[in-house]
Design a protein around this nucleic acid. Sequence first.
DNA 1: AAATAATCATGATCTGGATCAACAAATAGA
DNA 2: TCTATTTGTTGATCCAGATCATGATTATTT
Lengths: 246, 246
Amino acid sequence: MPKLYKRDASACELIACKDCGIYQLCRLASGCEDPSVSNALVRRRFILRRGEFLYRNGDTFQDIYAVRHGSIKTYIASDDGKTQITNFLGSGELIGFDAIDAGRFDSEAIVLETTSVCEVSFSHFQGLSRKIPGLLDQLVVVMSHAILRDQQMMLLLGKKSATEKLATYLVNLGRHIDKNKSSPSTYKLTMSRRDIGNYLGLTQETICRILARFQEDGIIRIQRKYLHFVDMNRLRELASKIQAER
Amino acid sequence: MPKLYKRDASACELIACKDCGIYQLCRLASGCEDPSVSNALVRRRFILRRGEFLYRNGDTFQDIYAVRHGSIKTYIASDDGKTQITNFLGSGELIGFDAIDAGRFDSEAIVLETTSVCEVSFSHFQGLSRKIPGLLDQLVVVMSHAILRDQQMMLLLGKKSATEKLATYLVNLGRHIDKNKSSPSTYKLTMSRRDIGNYLGLTQETICRILARFQEDGIIRIQRKYLHFVDMNRLRELASKIQAER
DNA sequence: AAATAATCATGATCTGGATCAACAAATAGA
DNA sequence: TCTATTTGTTGATCCAGATCATGATTATTT
């Protein structure tokens, strides 16, 4: 059962700041091209471990966060207790701006593995933006992208079959790999089958079965948490059903 | 078959600017409290008629829009031609910021009835924001709200039953009514059953059947496009299944 | 006004993915 | 180390909502 909550810490392995979602923001804030001088924006860094919350439902909104290394899931709940995972976040991604309007979080963020995070005080950010033109413009761009992503998700949830959903999900994982140039085509899944199912509007059983089928068909190899991409093109076809029959 | 596209025009019945989603923006831009002085921000106003596009897939992004009066649907398409309606917009709502990041629209907006729109040049908006602190902050707030809304939609699409989906949809329509104080509890549906179904991840047949059931159960009265709310509380219960049995 | 095309409505049937069940494997805790 | 809990897997069955079909209204065009 989760657990702790925003434990303080310091020093963590750096990921390249220039691969971070707030790199442009940090660069602007520090007023120079040097990517390491990001402290004008980032208040503190800390580490969370598996099962710990970054924020909880009802928390007052004060900060936005950037994932430096690790992974996080965010989800919302309905009145009657159903939950929907709204995103899985990895290195360089930003969390928290869904709470700007209400001034408090109506969602929760749980860490899926040991994860280091940069914390940006939003009021400090707003203060800086008075001095640094372009800072808010950059935030607007990031938020625009998030809206686009959410709309793609609505399309997936509303219109795609189970196979298309999972194929789409895997293709998107694949993109991350290229971006972070880890081993050519292998991915460590940090989320459970249940989480994937919840995210895609399916059950864990369906996820298991389709993963098994993808493996039989020679599209992926999967062993528990370890996913290996064998035929990315076929997967892309399945993601939007343009499969040249078979 | 749709049709024309961004036809120019002028003069249209005003809706109260203070009920508009960009009222705060207009007010800041005009630098005074007078809600009628909004021309610092709004470039032009025009009217579209049923079936006309406000923007189309692939269009270069230049403007954001505010609906003054009328209604609009927005949707995206997958590679294989499935479409998902992402929003229905009414008076005072803003459209277009999903295109800021990419610089072009990956979605389309079609007008559902004769609709008047305020057009705001985004580059002009950015220019103004250099002089008027708070302008971009306000946009960030509006976008944050849009993200929240999209997440609620993901929950609906991923986790709710057909009945819950439609009840939720009707309850949200109801909110609009109060806000725009039209006749006590009657609503003119400008979208088709098919559109509602598409939006909610259902078919038009299912929408018809559930509407009929809601009417039998004395929750609404519905006659083609005209919807009358009879028991809003019951509807709210159905929206998140907390129905005290029956 | 007549013809055509959308839209709405309702019944009959089918099916993709949920649910239920039972167990295996891995992980966390004591 | 052993035990308990979580996570993953696969089969059998079921059902909510899709699909198919047909006709009634209502809008739009000619």
